[in-house]
Amino acid sequence: MTDSCNIKASVVIPTKNGGSRFRSVLKAVLEQKTNWPFEVIVIDSGSSDQTLAIASANPAVRIINVEPTDFQHGRTRNTAIGQAKGEFIAMITQDAQPVAENWLHSLVEKIESDEQIAGVFGRHIAYDDASLFTREELVQHFSGFQSQPVVQLTDQERYRNDPGYQQFLYFFSDNNALLRRSVWERHPYPEVDFSEDQAWARIIIEAGYKKAYSHDAVVYHSHNYGLWERFQRSFDESMALDELFHYEQPKGLLVPLRSWIGLTLRDLRSVRHNLSKEGLGLILPTIRAPIDNLMRVCGSWLGVRSALMSPTLIAFCSRDKKLKRMKRKS
């Protein structure tokens, strides 16, 4: 797998109590088929389960430890990349499992197709335990990038005035991505608590580089959020994106109502199209879906108003703030 003198790609996996799923992720990474050497780096921030034992069981895996209180999405990834040896850096998370043995090859093949490509992100599909709505949402989301897999900032006026165009250019997911090291050396991850991947994409897009999407570099990656967890996750994402990008978007009370109706109608269409195949298994997810959508849109709507909220209310709504409080106490 590795030849320390000529490593083309380094795979970086940040971990914290990855559990049994991390075992499957690491196994899939180590089984990648390439015609060039690659290395695997696990950067762990204080796991107390079997994560470190799983990683250390394979001598080919290099482990970097950081203090839990020092963890930060941007800074921790920069630490790992700074110690990596590859020309390209594949970023993956402890719960994103490559689907096939060509995952890493597909990412590298895409970035080598054009020396102006600074980063590539790959497709996500849902795990088998995900709901129909999660599965279809991922399919729809990533299919939107197929028609224009390589993008570059070419229309400055539209970029200044069109938030949708900005969001399309900024989207980047380092749950499944590849960075060109030479670009990272000039433009490392910004040291932010959330959405470090999209913040980095903005930097490289504004610097004139291209960003690419690989439909063939596929990972399993999905979450079965509880209802309150869904609210908190949506709140944190919305707050982070608003703080980073200051998107101009409607903020009236009709916004979450329209979003909720749109999402719920989308889910009902999915039920109708899949009823014969899914059968009675759709009953509980269908009942739950409108509530889940309500938690999502309410969290997002409040997230863009965080500047108007008290610290106590923000702490109540934010899962990220709660985790940070727990780290400080421990």
Rank of each mutant, 00 (worst) to 15 (best):
Q72S: 14
E115S: 15
A60S: 12
G119D: 00
F38E: 02
S131Y: 08
N65A: 13
T79D: 09
D114E: 11
R135Y: 08
H124Q: 04
R77T: 03
S45Q: 07
I81C: 03
T69H: 15
A118Q: 00
K85R: 13
K110L: 12
I89Q: 03
P59F: 04
T93A: 05
V66W: 05
Y127D: 07
I81H: 08
A90P: 02
N78V: 07
A84Q: 09
G46T: 09
Q97K: 11
D114K: 06
K85F: 10
L52C: 05
E67W: 03
I63G: 04
I64L: 15
Y127W: 10
Q83G: 00
E101C: 06
A126S: 15
D114P: 07
P59H: 01
F88G: 00
E112F: 07
G74I: 05
S113C: 06
I111K: 01
A84K: 02
S106W: 06
A55S: 14
E115Y: 13
P68T: 06
H73E: 12
A100P: 04
G46V: 07
I63Y: 11
R135M: 08
P98G: 03
G122F: 08
L52F: 11
Q140V: 10
R135Q: 13
F71K: 02
A118Y: 03
L138V: 07
G119S: 13
T79A: 12
I92Y: 01
Q83T: 01
G82F: 06
R77A: 02
V66L: 04
E67M: 02
Q140D: 11
G74A: 10
A53E: 13
S56D: 14
G122M: 09
A57Y: 05
T93L: 04
E67R: 06
Q116M: 08
I81V: 13
P98F: 03
I64K: 00
R135T: 11
I117F: 01
P68G: 07
Q50I: 07
N58G: 05
L132R: 13
E39K: 01
A90H: 07
P68V: 01
I63K: 02
A126Q: 11
P98V: 05
S131I: 15
H105A: 14
V40W: 01
H73Q: 10
N35W: 05
T134I: 12
S45Y: 03
G122L: 09
W36L: 02
I54H: 11
M91W: 08
I54P: 04
R123Y: 09
S106A: 15
F71R: 00
